Simulated assay, not measured.
Amino acid sequence: MSATVHHLGRDSAPSLEPLMALVVSDMNQVNSVILDRMQSEIPLIPELAGHLIAGGGKRLRPMLTLAAAKLIDYSGYRHFKLAAAVEFIHTATLLHDDVVDGSDLRRGKTAANLIFGNPATVLVGDFLFSRSFELMVEDGSLKVLKILSHASAVIAEGEVNQLTAQRKIDTSEDRYLDIIGAKTAALFAAASRISAVVAERDEEVELALDSYGRNLGIAFQLVDDAIDYSSDSETMGKDAGDDFREGKVTLPVILAYARGTEEDRKFWKDAIIGHKSSNDDLFHATELLKQTGAIDDTMSRARHYGQRAIDALGAFPAGNARAAMTEAVEFAISRAY
């Protein structure tokens, strides 16, 4: 086992291409399962599910399942259905999120609930959750079922935690990290870990892959929360400033509020409870985030968790799989630049 550790920072712009190339043939198998299992005799179900599933998502979470299998030299087929289950869990949460958040865009397209309505969107999300559990049961491993079902419960808890923290400017950094650790990182961790289970590797390998996915997930969400204020809808696939208008207290806001003047803090209080949500208010918020270093420090925190993800790969032999998984972390962080 090699203990060599890669460090963030490279001369060329990092890309997801090495990860995609690593798993391209396996991903074809997973996509086949996804297309097959999203079908129903009720035409609205595949139509609505397909709107999001075919909507240009990177399929990062199932790719992590496939890449982890490559990393540990698993040569079976069980992970194909499980990677599809991971994508169904993710898609279901996105459909539910769009109803809860009321966002206009998802992956650069009109959000499903604006086209099909909230009731249908919620119910098709339920359908995809159910399909994911069918796939887990077909695999036959109680341990896999435990990991993925627990992740599903944790994601739901994280979403409820975020909902109850909404429009509360006094949300703590610890609570924020609990929220993103649940709603985003839990599925990254489970997606990475389950390959070690089907490959019947020891718990040390499981935990290393769990650590990789969990830290990547936290880094990924930190970057998302930073670019909500510093990017555009084309880059993000959702409307810029959504978090601001929805009163979500993310790390950039927590830092800016803590560091702001009395006048700044009054602005943040008014903005988060919904009294300031215009484009001019968003511009002012973004300026305050820059002045206080909140965006830069959020990105610094993302790099910290990204490095932890990369460090977790140090237990595995060098090769194409480890290099691709390392670059995936660097790509996740470079999206902000």
Rank of each mutant, 00 (worst) to 15 (best):
S2I: 08
T4K: 10
H6E: 11
S12A: 14
A13C: 09
A13S: 14
S25K: 15
V30W: 10
N31E: 15
S32I: 04
I34L: 15
I42S: 06
I42Y: 09
P43Q: 12
I45E: 04
P46I: 03
L48D: 04
A49K: 01
H51K: 03
L52I: 12
G57R: 05
T65M: 05
A69R: 03
K70V: 06
K70W: 09
L71W: 07
I72V: 14
S75M: 12
H79G: 12
K81N: 14
L82F: 02
A83M: 09
A84Q: 01
V86T: 08
H90K: 03
T93E: 03
L94V: 03
D98T: 10
D101L: 05
S103M: 02
D104K: 10
T110D: 11
A111C: 14
A111I: 04
A112Q: 05
A112H: 09
F116M: 08
G117F: 06
G117Q: 10
A120L: 13
V122K: 06
S130A: 10
L145T: 14
H150V: 06
S152L: 04
S152R: 00
I155M: 04
N161H: 03
Q162H: 01
K168Y: 12
I169F: 09
T171G: 02
T171L: 03
Y176G: 03
L177M: 12
I179S: 12
A185R: 05
A186Y: 09
L187R: 02
A191S: 15
R193H: 12
R193G: 00
D202V: 07
L207T: 09
L207Q: 11
L209Q: 08
L209D: 07
D210Q: 12
S211I: 00
S211C: 11
S211G: 07
R214P: 01
V223A: 11
D232S: 11
T235I: 08
A240R: 06
F244A: 14
L255N: 00
A256F: 02
R259M: 10
G260L: 11
G260I: 07
T261K: 12
E262H: 11
E262G: 13
E263R: 14
D264M: 07
W268S: 13
G274M: 11
S278R: 05
N279W: 03
D280P: 02
D280H: 01
L282N: 01
L282E: 14
F283V: 05
H284N: 13
L289K: 07
Q291Y: 02
Y305R: 10
R308C: 13
R308W: 01
I310T: 13
I310R: 00
D311G: 12
A312L: 01
G319C: 08
N320K: 14
N320T: 04
N320A: 14
A324R: 06
V329M: 13
F331Y: 15
F331P: 00
R335P: 08
A336C: 07
